[in-house]
Every structure is written in structure tokens, then in C-alpha cells.
């Protein structure tokens, strides 16, 4: 009996350690901002799934396109229908690797990191890399990063009538809290 208990305890410990290195969320936040002299547009998404492997540095996000919320309902519809074609391309994906050499996940603090990887949206994959920060607090990690994308790089056509209202440098902001699952 004692032995079985011991075995179970060890097995449980091993399993626990196996999971401890993955921090996850399904309520991550990603927003984007397009600024032009005619109109500023900002949209928010609070339904982003993300995972960070604290050992390997693997970093991934899945962004459901239809979950982007706009201030104007009609703009949200056009975003999905005309630009992102979210029925055809329902998700954007980021698959990357963060350099976590300087990050101590057991010590609270803000750490500067670099990440590089591939962003797939609207059926087009492009390299996206850059700096960001990881804020460690009580075992959870908040990933903050900013980068710009050009819609035309991803095959998103912008008609002449709308071109003055949509920037070709759209700022994407990631502010996502990842927790032990």
C-alpha cells in the first residue's frame, strides 16, 4: 500500500513538472490601430489563445478574426466581409520562438525579450520578429509586444475609396497574460 502511494506521488510529481513549463490563455488581448489623417481606427480582441513554453521559448498565438470588436458595427462587418474574409480565413496564427535566456519565471519582474517567428493571416505567411517584454508576477507571465503590418503584404485589397482611411502601417499590440494551466 505504501509503495503504491509512493509510486503515485512520484508519477504525479513528474506529470506536474511536465506541465509546469507551459503557460496558457484563451482570453488573451490583441488590438490593432490604424492612423491616417482622415480617420483613426482601433479594434480589440479579447479571445486570443496563446501559449508560451518557458523551457523552449516556443510562443504561439491563435487569433479568431471574427472576435475583433470595432466601435462601428458596420466597420466590423466590412472588416470581416471585405478585408479579412473571415469565413475563408477564420484565424490568424503566430508561431514563434522567444529568447528566454534572461528570464527567471520564479522571480517577479519585467524582462526584455526578443521573439522571431511567422505570422499567418488572410492565407499569407510572413516573418514577424521584434522585441517585447515579459512581466512575471506570481508565476504568471504577461507578454507585451508591438509590431506593424502592412495589409497589402497579406494580400488584403483596399479599394481606392477606402485607401485614405486605412493605414499601410497598422500597429498590432499584444498584451496577454499567460497562466499555468
Amino acid at each position: 500500500m505504501k509503495k503504491i502511494l509512493l509510486l503515485a506521488a512520484i508519477a504525479g510529481l513528474a506529470a506536474y513538472q511536465g506541465n509546469a513549463q507551459k503557460l496558457m490563455t484563451r482570453t488573451g488581448k490583441v488590438s490593432f490601430f490604424s492612423a491616417t489623417p482622415v480617420e483613426n481606427i482601433e479594434a480589440f480582441n479579447n479571445e486570443v489563445a496563446g501559449v508560451l513554453d518557458t523551457k523552449s521559448g516556443d510562443l504561439m498565438f491563435i487569433v479568431p478574426i471574427k472576435s475583433f470588436k470595432f466601435e462601428k458595427a458596420l466597420m466590423q462587418e466590412h472588416f470581416n466581409e471585405n478585408y479579412m474574409e473571415s469565413d475563408k480565413f477564420p484565424k490568424a496564427e503566430y508561431k514563434g520562438k522567444a529568447d528566454l535566456a534572461g528570464v527567471n519565471f520564479t522571480k517577479d519582474g519585467s524582462y526584455k525579450v526578443k521573439a522571431s517567428g511567422k505570422l499567418t493571416m488572410h492565407g499569407v505567411t510572413k516573418d514577424v520578429s521584434g522585441p517585447g517584454t515579459i512581466v512575471v508576477k506570481a508565476g504568471s507571465a504577461t507578454v507585451n509586444a508591438k509590431f506593424t503590418v502592412n495589409p497589402t503584404d497579406y494580400g488584403i485589397k483596399i479599394p481606392a475609396v477606402a485607401s485614405s482611411k486605412i493605414s499601410d502601417k497598422i500597429e498590432v499590440t499584444i498584451d496577454t497574460n499567460l497562466k499555468n494551466k
Binding site: 507551459k22 484563451r26 479571445e47 489563445a49 501559449v51 513554453d53 504561439m60 491563435i62 479568431p64 484565424k91
Partner: peptide, 17 residues
């Protein structure tokens, strides 16, 4: 496989939503 597993994990998360 590790990255594949992570991706699968994430996808199952989003699909259940």
C-alpha cells in the same frame, strides 16, 4: 512534435470557444 502539440492544444482551446 513539441510545437505541433502546442498548436493542437491551442486549437482545441479556440475550437471549444
Amino acid at each position: 512534435d513539441e510545437t505541433e502539440d502546442l498548436m493542437k492544444m491551442l486549437e482545441s482551446e479556440t475550437d471549444n470557444k
